[in-house]
Design a protein around this nucleic acid. Sequence first.
DNA 1: GATTCCCTATCTACTGATAGGTAGATATAT
DNA 2: ATATATCTACCTATCAGTAGATAGGGAATC
Lengths: 187, 187
Amino acid sequence: MPKTEKPLSETASRILDVAERMARQGGYYAFSFRDIAAEIGIKSASIHYHFPTKEALGEALVTRYTDRFLGALGRLDEATPLESLEQYVAAYRQALIEQDLMCLCGMFGAEIARLPDPVARRTREFFERNLVWLETVFRAAGATNPEARAGETIARLEGAMILARSMNDMDLFQSVTADLPAQALRE
Amino acid sequence: MPKTEKPLSETASRILDVAERMARQGGYYAFSFRDIAAEIGIKSASIHYHFPTKEALGEALVTRYTDRFLGALGRLDEATPLESLEQYVAAYRQALIEQDLMCLCGMFGAEIARLPDPVARRTREFFERNLVWLETVFRAAGATNPEARAGETIARLEGAMILARSMNDMDLFQSVTADLPAQALRE
DNA sequence: GATTCCCTATCTACTGATAGGTAGATATAT
DNA sequence: ATATATCTACCTATCAGTAGATAGGGAATC
């Protein structure tokens, strides 16, 4: 029997929920064991039972985020490239507009020079896997330079989140990304 | 005589230099009075003489950065739109490649939800002034939607910095932004 | 059926390090 | 003398992390 990933306990996933929200608001230094514990009604020492160090918690945060993010994208063999791209843009829009949060890995990517190594590595994996997914889409669409198109797509979406949040104008995200799927495929 | 901005003392500008580098590596929580003081060989209490609070230091950081960044761009009436855009992209490239640092305001923009109000306000001003500059360029080029083009340009550049640093692949910044000036003007 | 043992999950109470910030003395130069 | 700029010495709050006690729930043993 292959190794099945152990399911997270109720408490562990509540810890991740709160930590993720805090990290996506202010970055790696913006969540603390104390604050998380206070919010979910336990003591900070109890968090160390589930995640021995902050580094481990950060790693679990990025791993869960990456799996959830990519898992939410539909299967590539069941959609046209345009549909896939529209879905990809919608995933970012939902994170920004509905949750009013930055992308976790956009945040950690900005801070990457001061992140613990394992957290930085997981963050890189997020982008690596996203690039692969997008390259597949652009290749299916017959793009001449799928690697560059994939990078442009991620860059514009992450940057649009930062810009819209900074200007406190979520419509700006819309106008900056509205023509992204069509334009990227036109190249 | 109009109010002339008081020149920064030697020590004050060294404080800003060190704080800026730390902030551009890890964000607002990644620079501390102690670390800055240790690096320039004074005591942390002395920093409070020049910048009474961290909030004030952060504000000075963004103000100086914004003025320097926009000041480094050439005059719009002395260049073609394409030249202006190429210069704009080059400004980001230099920050990333030569200094190996994030854009300060890209970093603070990501963290904006947890920044002290005055620092957040200055960060917004950076983007506001950059949008105005770029809109002028796109308007001069006869673009039909200069606001959207300006936002796209900033978004792609900030996002490309994050992506390239995350992947530890500076060539990625080049390939993601190579066709930016030409493509943006073609619309 | 009661007892023993272990595992899970939490707690209290603490540590050493570091954070931003303050009061007041001191030195220097005008 | 005054203003500038630094220092020593300290404060309180917070940080991640640790040790060890405690409580509850099976499961195995008597």
